[in-house]
Amino acid sequence: MFSTEDYNEKIDAYLKGNLSPDEAKVFESKLHSDPALKSEFLFQQSLLADIQASRKSELKARLNNINIPAEKPAYWKYAVLAGIATTIFVAINYLPDNILKNDKAEIKTATSDKLENLGKGVAFDKSEAEEIEEEDKADLQAKPTEAPEEAKSNPTESKKVVSNPEKDSGKEVLPNLPDVHTPESYGNDHVGKDVETPDHNLTKTKQINTTVAGVEVVKSKKHKFHYQYFDNKLFLYGDFDTKTYDILELNNSKGQKLYLKFESNYYELQPDRTEISKLEIVKNRETLKELEEIQKK
């Protein structure tokens, strides 16, 4: 016999799909023989569904607030999309209808098997693939523009793109497709939320656009001079409450990046640091020069 607490734990686990098949069977038979459990179960079932629906509409509202830039033509990208489209087209035929309920195993077979076949028909040309990737990086403004179908008119190019610069085998073609980079994928990982005015601590801050939604200073015994990005925010660990610091944004050929100026030194803020990382001083002369330049403006 369960206590109420155990009931709830079990019901949670069952509804979240965390019971083993055996445990689930035991639970189900209890459900049939115990009317109190059954009624609590039905209550919880609809409550959890409501909680999930509520969270879902919250997240949808979040997504609806994201501003999607208008389309821009970028013809060479059709080729990339054609590659993806063809592959998916093949893969899709092997995916059972209800993909959401499928386990990864099925998806695995569907994709990797078919990709392997597809890969065989693909011409490999390392330099060309790299070239296209380069082009991709250079064209920061470009967006995927058209549905892949249109791109089929350009079969030669699509082959180049699908080729795999790192491996010799034709397997896993897709994972090596060049990314279609949005500006945000360079220099910072955060989708352009409008700037909330950063902390009052930021004295001479140059515009921080599309980068972080805020800066938070954290006091920590363990981390005295560290930083990390999380949930669109930059967290600075250390003595930043009492002394002034600047966050500088540098846009150059390598993309957009943030730097911290603290006690007349510059520190790099790598956009991909989601773990707490040590602040590292900038040594590259050119970068330093550029940073000095922004300060003068």
Binding site: R62, L63, I66, I68, E184, S185, D189, H190, D231, N232
Partner: peptide, 10 residues
Amino acid sequence: ESALDFLYKK
């Protein structure tokens, strides 16, 4: 959740 935003836009 910023990763969700990123994927959405991308």
